[in-house]
Amino acid sequence: MMSEYETFRFIRNYLKIPMSKVAISLNVVESTVHRIEHGLTIPTAQQRAKLFEIYGVNEEQFQALRVITFHLALYLRKIEVKVN
């Protein structure tokens, strides 16, 4: 399964939400969002709930996305190996 921080980054990138807008919504600096998305900082429960709100998902949907994105990444790696 994909890590939570990778899933947060994937969703933000997929939705094309600038890191600056997420930072403003969380009331933090952009580097904090970067650190959350790279597993260097664990979001607080309040930040995690706010991220769900920003991205329009609940806990169950987020966990499902973790599984889906993991399998998508595996699939894309297989295609990349076949092409090379």
Rank of each mutant, 00 (worst) to 15 (best):
Y75G: 11
T7W: 00
L72I: 12
L26R: 08
V83M: 14
H38M: 04
V33Q: 00
R48T: 02
V67L: 14
R35L: 05
N13R: 12
I54A: 06
H38L: 02
E60D: 11
L51K: 08
K78H: 12
L76H: 13
V67K: 13
N27D: 15
P43M: 03
K82L: 14
T41S: 06
F70P: 00
Q63G: 01
M19T: 15
T44M: 06
E6R: 02
L65C: 01
E30P: 14
R9C: 00
R9G: 00
Q61R: 12
E4V: 03
Y55E: 05
F70D: 11
E80I: 13
E6F: 00
V29M: 09
R35N: 09
R35M: 04
K21N: 11
R48H: 01
H71D: 12
S31K: 13
I24T: 15
S20W: 05
G56E: 03
I36F: 02
A49F: 10
E60I: 07
E80W: 10
F62M: 07
L15E: 14
E59T: 09
Q61I: 09
Q61H: 09
I24D: 15
K82I: 13
V29R: 14
A73P: 08
K78G: 09
S20Y: 06
G39H: 02
N58C: 03
A45T: 10
L15P: 01
R48L: 06
R77A: 14
T44Y: 06
M2W: 08
P43K: 07
R66T: 06
S25T: 08
L76D: 14
R48S: 01
Q63Y: 09
V28W: 06
G56K: 03
V33H: 02
E30I: 05
Y5Q: 01
T44V: 04
S3G: 01
L65S: 01
I79T: 12
Q47D: 04
F62A: 06
G39E: 04
M2P: 01
E53C: 02
F10G: 00
S20N: 09
S20Q: 11
R12C: 02
K82Y: 11
R35G: 01
K50R: 15
F70I: 04
L74C: 11
F52K: 09
Q63K: 13
T44H: 05
E53D: 15
V29T: 13
L40G: 08
V28L: 12
N58K: 10
V81A: 12
Y55Q: 07
R12Y: 05
I17E: 07
K16D: 12
F62G: 00
H38E: 04
P18L: 03
L74K: 15
F52Q: 14
V33I: 14
L72Y: 09
N84A: 14
G56A: 06
N27F: 10
N58F: 07
I54S: 07
P43T: 06
P18Y: 06
S20M: 08
L72P: 03
H38P: 00
A64Y: 10
H38N: 11
I68F: 15
A45S: 10
L74F: 05
F8C: 04
